[in-house]
Every structure is written in structure tokens, then in C-alpha cells.
Amino acid sequence: MSASHTLLEVRDLAKHFTVTKGFPRPVTTTVRAVDGVGFVVARGEAFGLVGESGCGKSTAARAVLGLIPPDAGHVRFAEIDVTGARGSMLQQLRRRMQIVFQDPYSSLNPRRTIGQALTEPLGVHGLARGRAARERAIALLEEVGLPPSAYDRHPHEFSGGQRQRVGIARALSVEPELIVADEPVSALDVSVQAQVLLLLKDLQTRRGLAFVFVSHDLGVVRWFCSRVAVMYLGRIVETGSVSSVFGAPRHPYTRMLRDASPIPDPAIRGQLPRIVGEIPSAANPPAGCHFHPRCPRASDLCRTAFPEWRADGDGAVACHHPED
């Protein structure tokens, strides 16, 4: 992938949280929420980030946007260092990448009208004011499939799906090149999910947007993304094109995820997953390969040594005994 083609480059990203709990004897634990994550997203590409709950997807997404400072690694957006950006440089970056949140209820300020939510960013970035801002906001509403009358209403007058459309319109208001969508449909009714996904897909092609699409739903990622990275306990364990990763998973965890996810076509659905043990916590990951307590292929090597990356074809996998 050539440099000019690359929009976002994440390398060795790490974010650890220390949590102190308990009185009289407080115990401090370090949660390695993100522990050395790297990936590249091309312009206009939809890149998926999948993994179980708590594996660090949201943390990675927030660090990519510079909303939390990472402990290590770096993020480059269009050749600009996101982690070191300050002032006007940061302000410019904020305009070029945006986020869509999972929860359409908490992502809109209940006291502000939809119009205020959409015009505020326009004002802050000096894109439009007054009447021009209003016109742009109404155009945005139309683009996401909401009537102009939504402009003067408050969020509580809308359904979850409609609110999510407002959230998307707000992200679009500053005309970003990249949208980080953190589980944008998983809080919505199944019937609404498809509509919102179609909207996002439509925007991607029409506006040439790049996406980092965070999800735990393989079906959705499979449909939406062209490339994907699978995360487990703060690390990426397998990456590659959607067809190769999900078509022929090489990492046992990827296989488990795929087999567990309801894929409409029964032909490609394998046997039920072997759930062995609980999901280990990122606060106390097991030694060696983090996945070994649940892995059907685990060997003694897996219990002691951490598997290195192995590139193969357009993808890569971190496993001592990958499937073929």
C-alpha cells in the first residue's frame, strides 16, 4: 500500500488503565486494555475491528481519535502525528476524523435541539453561521434520511435509529475523511440496524469515506468491511481481507468467533464453539498466548511463549499453530 494511499496508520498502540479499588487495603491493578495494536486504513476503505466485549476495541478507537492519550505507540492520520498534535493542528485533525457512538441515547445532549447539535460544530470550525449553517444542517438531515422538521426538535422526540442518524449527521457536519464507528448499530433494534448500515454504506461510497468499524458482530463486519482485524485481550490476533479471515480463519479464536456468530448461510456455519472457561480479563491476562486457556489447539509452547506475528499473503496471524 503506497503512502499516499494510506489515511490512517496505527503502530504499537498501548493504553493501560490502573484501577485502585478497596478500602482498607487498596489493590491497584493494571488493565492492559490495548497492548500493542497496529493496523493501516486506506483512503475510502472500511476497516473492521472485531472482538468480544472488553477486549479493548473502544479504547483503541478513542486513542486513534486522540480522545485519550496512549501510553505507547503512535497514530498517524494523513502523515500527521495525532498523538503529538496540539492547538490548531489538533483542531484540524478533529475536523478530518469523526466518531459515531454506540449508544444513541447518551450521545446527544438531551437539552439541545437537533439543529443546535448540527450547527454547533459548523460554528466552532468556522464552516458556516446563521442561515448558511441552518441550510447545511437541513441538507445533512436530508442526507441521513430525516425530515427538515427534525431541526427544531429535541432528541427525546426521536427513536434510537433516528437519533443514530442525527449522530451520523453531526459527524458528517465537519466533512471528515474518516469515521470511527464504535458499534454504531449494536444498540439498535434488529429491524433498524439494516437501515442504518445501508445509510453508512451509502455514505461511504458517495462521500468516499474511510471507516474504522468497531463491532462484535461478525455478520455486520463481513457485510460492511473489506479488511478486518480480530482483537483478543488488547491485541490483534489475526488480520487480513474479510473473505480470507472469515472464509478460512487461521487463528483458533477467529474460528471460534466465526462459528459462534449467526451467519445466515447454514452451509458455512461450522460446529458450535467450544466454550472452555471464562473470558480471561485484561487485568490479568494468562501467560504465553492469552488465548491458550480456551484454545483447543493449545500446546505447552502456547502456555509459555507469546506467539509472534506471521505475515502470510495479505493477512497476518499471531499463533503458534495456525490452521491452514
Binding site: L67, Q91, R94, Q98, S107, P121, V124, R170
Partner: peptide, 17 residues
């Protein structure tokens, strides 16, 4: 802790705003 605060930061709003 609500997402709209983080949304504001992502949109480049100042802390004061």
C-alpha cells in the same frame, strides 16, 4: 461520562464550551 461530552471533544469543542 456521557457520550455527548466525548462527541463534543471529538468535534473540537473547547473545554470551556
Amino acid at each position: 461520562e456521557r457520550a455527548f461530552i466525548e462527541a463534543g471533544r471529538a468535534l473540537g469543542f473547547s473545554h470551556l464550551r
